[in-house]
């Protein structure tokens, strides 16, 4: 099979277009419940919490994520498309200066990863990232 550079470029361009078109689906209610439990329904700010996750995960079994929230006392991570949305809660001690951590998580399908930080002043911050979980070439 001959595949020209042009064809490949076209394929790449169309997949990028698809990625940017993808609107974030509404939160699953289970994830909403967990957010409410963590925040007590408080308002969620944005900007002070950074969540790093791949746009596309080659396999949902091992998806690297990083959270970073200077000034946070704790950060909870949720995955709104998993059977159980809770992923982990990081409570930071005084010696964790940067209030950041990385781990590897499981995502059952394409979905939003949501991080909520509780800040030292009692306010809350939110960050989210849509992660596309791909299916291997031969369904494997």
């Amino acid at each position: 099979m001959e595949l020209s550079r042009r064809k490949l470029l076209a394929m790449g361009a169309s997949s990028i277009a698809l990625m940017s078109l993808g609107t974030l689906p509404a939160f699953a209610s289970k994830a909403d419940d967990e957010i409410a439990k963590f925040t007590g329904g408080a308002e969620l700010g944005e900007g002070a919490l950074e969540l790093t996750a791949p746009e596309i995960a080659e396999n949902g079994n091992t998806v690297p994520i990083e959270i970073s929230a200077p000034g946070a006392v704790s950060v909870t991570v949720l995955a709104d498309g998993n059977p159980v949305p809770n992923v982990a809660t990081f409570n930071f001690g005084k010696l964790n200066a940067s209030r950041s951590a990385s781990t590897r998580i499981r995502l059952s399908k394409t979905q939003n990863v949501i991080a909520i930080a509780k800040m030292e002043d009692g306010s809350f911050q939110m960050a989210k990232a849509n992660v596309k979980v791909t299916i291997g070439g031969c369904g494997g």
Partner: peptide, 13 residues
């Protein structure tokens, strides 16, 4: 002195 205390759920790899 505590550095980090993490609660893990089944979604951790």
């Amino acid at each position: 002195e505590n550095v980090i205390d993490v609660t893990l759920e089944p979604a951790i790899s």
